[in-house]
Structure formats: structure tokens, C-alpha cells
Design a protein around this nucleic acid. Structure first.
Lengths: 238, 238
DNA sequence: AAGTGGTCTAGACCACGGC
DNA sequence: CCGTGGTCTAGACCACTTC
């Protein structure tokens, strides 16, 4: 955990976020940073590339690394952030109501989404997320029992991700996400406060472990007024 | 343009997409690839890291690089792709109708979005995108005249990005994207086929050049049934 | 011409997985 | 134990910007 380039990256992030380095100004050059941190230039470059990837700086050849003004990407659904992490950043009191927690044989749809056989069993979890007294989000999780043998209502109310990563020591590695807009189902209308709303934003999430095995499928159904997705993208010049 | 690591990356992409390397199988090890391509290991690692970032492989320490089954991310709004590139991938005949092309002093909203003064002038471009005979998307572009002195209706009908990158030689570097859902405005109803639809999906795009200067603000307003956003995200373990 | 970032090399040691 | 990927080094040359 004492990664040099990560340490340097985090150190510079801290300086940028604290405003110690002015936006639109230049970072010290790579050669200067190399001496400053007492390391090789390639290691500095790893740190700077990470900063560029995360939208903190823009590297310009022959010139230097420009610090980008960070317009506070305050709702980063992008990047695999869980509900509790999100609510915390929004500064509101979240509440989670577990509507269902059962172990079932997968139906056709789930079998397809999770890419498994009829013999596997799957946890069905249905949760409503309440923020500021309003039921805003319906989360439907499907977890392969092969990877998650046991789970309780208390865990679902707290944080499934925390349980998976810290108790079961599963390493979540990457996800494929899809966002679409549909008409609400009867279930949506039943469980959420949808009076006066005509659509629902659906985020489908396919979550993979570090060995590239698919272990979870999640549908996160958002009331449209409270949905916001922010993304930082670099143009591929290939 | 004869980048070694890019060449290697593209070569492996081609093999994966052609199915010459089976999904869930392992790539040759980095040491083998190093000999195979006659290069250093760090160069191979650059190519592999790019592959991982683009969702082609999953690297596992002590094991190797697993080829991920590519579920054809067929509508990658993610990654700064333009409308014409998109329509092409969808295999449908797109049509662009230019409703407005004018040079104006910015109003309060645009001044704020583009972060400019009252003295700058701004191109206002309003275009409707038609796919399969239906008016689906309303694109409203605002370009700082400082970077784009001249533009014509023909260019807007074809591809603004193509003009900027190939004629003006502007290098688009990165963008901040925001997706929200709102009620349609009178203008939306007027210009698009929105009969029976109650919401509109808005993609706000702030586009930056390579020197980190903001030069374009775009609002892309989609009919909800034809909107789809796909994303590949890696979990940050920091 | 001097300074910047971009690429590349040939080695080294470490952490981890599987046999 | 061996092979894997992860980190790191000290140099080199190149392309580009600025003066």
C-alpha cells in the first residue's frame, strides 16, 4: 500500500483540492517533480497520467501540465460508486427499506442477465431508497449464490458492497453500465413516490470480479427529477 | 504515428474482435509478448493497460490477462462520439436539419456555460436529427467565435467535429458530460416528434481543447425511447 | 537553444497464483 | 518452486513550445 506513484498522485490531488495550486496554472515539470519526490521520471509520469485520467490536469507537450478547475463532479454515478457513498456526498439523510430478500431459482430473464444455469441459485434483493422523506430509487439486486453464500436483511439495509468487499473479501473489478428511460411498471408506482411522473430512469449494472467472472446484476430505477449522471471523458485519437 | 504500444494495442484489438483469441482465454504473458513483438516489457505493458482501460482484457496478478467477452458496447455515447459516428454504427440513414445558424452576443445562460465575457461572440447552432423518418434528437451547439471564426450550413449538416478537427485543426481533448431528465419545452415539442412522450433526456456537454480551454457547450436533447447510454467503468481501489 | 512532455529500453525486485 | 503481473530505475532520443 506504499505505492510511490499513488502516494504522489494523492499528494497532488490534495494540493489541488485545497487550492494550493491555482486552476489553470502549471504543475512543476516532470523533471522538477522527479527531484522533488526523489524518484524516477517514469514514476512521476505514472502519477501524472492518473491525474489526467481523473480529470485533474491536462498535459500539453512542450508546455507542461495544466491544473483543471474542478467543477465538482458531485454526483459521480460514473465509476462504480454505491448508494451510501453517493448519499453521503449529497449530504442528505438516506434511508433504505428492504422489501425482499430471498434465495430463488433464476427465471429466464435473470438467467440471461447473469449468464448462469438453472441449477445455480440467486439472491433476490429489492430495496427502496428514501432521501428527504421521499422514495426516490428502487434497487433490484441479483447475486449469484456461488459467490455470496449468505446475506442478511441488516447487511442490505447497511451496504451490500461494504459486506462483499470487507467481509467476504470479494474484489470488485469492473462493471458494464447501461442507462435507459422507460415507463414505470406497476411495481415502480407501488413502491416509489411517482405522483406526477411519467418516466423512470433505469441503470442496469453488470458487476464483475477481479477474475472477470460476472457475479451481480443490478437494476437501479430512479425517479427522473432526482437522476443525474456526470462523466469525464477523454477523446480517443487513434 | 508509428507508436509501438499503440500498434501492438491495435493489433491485439483486431485479433480479439476477429475472434482469433477466444473470450475468457489468456493472452500470452508479458514476457512472451515482449519477445514476440521484439520490444521491452514496459512497452508491452502500456499496450495491455490500454486494452484493460478499453474493456478488452482483465489483468490478474500471478495469472495473466483474461480476454473479456465483448458484449458489443454498440451505443457508446461514452467517450465523446459524434452523432454521425453513432448513426453509422446503428446502421440507419441519419438526416440532419439545420434550424438555426447565427452569430450572437451571448445571453446570461450561455455566458455562464461557456465561461466568457459579453464581448465575445458565440455561434448558435440548432439542429434536428432524424433517424428512420422520425425527429429524435435536438442538438443545440454554442461555439466560441474566438476558436471558430467561420462556419457554414453545409458544415453543420455534415459534421461539425470533422470540420473542427480536419479543417481548423483544433484538437479536442476532453469533455465533461452531464445527463439529466426534464419536461420537454415548447421548442422540443415544436421541433421533435414527441407525441405521447412526457420527458426529454438532456446531455450537456462541455468540450475542451488540448490547452484546457473551453470552446464549446452542447445540449443534446433526446426522445427518451431512443436514448441509450453505455459505459464501462473500473473500480478505483484507492 | 533550452525546456517541456512522449516514447522506449534493459534491467531489477516484489507480490501473488498455481503446481 | 516457477511463472505471472506490479512497481521502479537511470538513462536515451524524439516532438513540440517558447524565447
Amino acid at each position: 500500500m506504499t505505492n510511490k506513484y499513488l502516494t504522489i498522485h494523492n499528494d497532488i490531488v490534495k494540493q489541488i483540492e485545497a487550492g494550493e495550486i491555482a486552476p489553470n496554472s502549471l504543475l512543476p515539470s516532470e523533471h522538477e517533480l522527479k527531484d522533488l519526490y526523489g524518484t524516477s521520471r517514469e514514476t512521476i509520469r505514472k502519477a501524472l497520467n492518473l491525474l489526467a485520467q481523473n480529470g485533474y490536469i491536462q498535459k500539453v507537450r512542450g508546455k507542461g501540465s495544466i491544473v483543471i478547475k474542478n467543477t465538482k463532479l458531485d454526483f459521480p454515478v460514473s465509476g462504480l460508486v454505491s448508494f451510501n457513498e453517493l448519499a453521503q456526498k449529497m449530504g442528505k439523510k438516506p434511508k433504505t427499506i428492504v422489501h425482499e430478500l430471498s434465495l430463488r431459482k433464476p427465471d429466464q430473464y435473470i438467467k440471461q442477465q447473469l449468464n448462469i444455469s438453472s441449477k445455480d441459485h440467486v439472491w433476490h434483493i429489492s430495496r427502496v431508497r428514501e432521501i428527504g422523506g421521499e422514495k426516490i430509487i428502487l434497487d433490484k439486486d441479483y447475486l449469484n449464490k456461488k459467490y455470496v453464500p449468505h446475506i442478511t436483511k441488516e447487511i442490505c439495509e447497511h451496504s451490500i458492497y461494504h459486506y462483499l468487499e470487507n467481509e467476504l473479501n470479494l474484489v470488485i473489478s469492473y462493471a458494464k453500465k447501461e442507462i435507459i428511460v422507460e415507463d414505470p411498471t406497476a411495481e415502480d408506482r407501488d413502491l416509489l413516490n411517482l405522483e406526477g411522473f411519467h418516466n423512470i430512469v433505469i441503470i442496469k449494472n453488470y458487476v464483475y470480479l477481479e477474475d472477470a467472472s460476472l457475479f451481480q446484476y443490478t437494476e437501479s430505477r430512479h425517479r427522473p427529477d432526482k437522476f443525474r449522471f456526470v462523466d469525464f471523458a477523454r477523446r480517443n485519437h487513434m
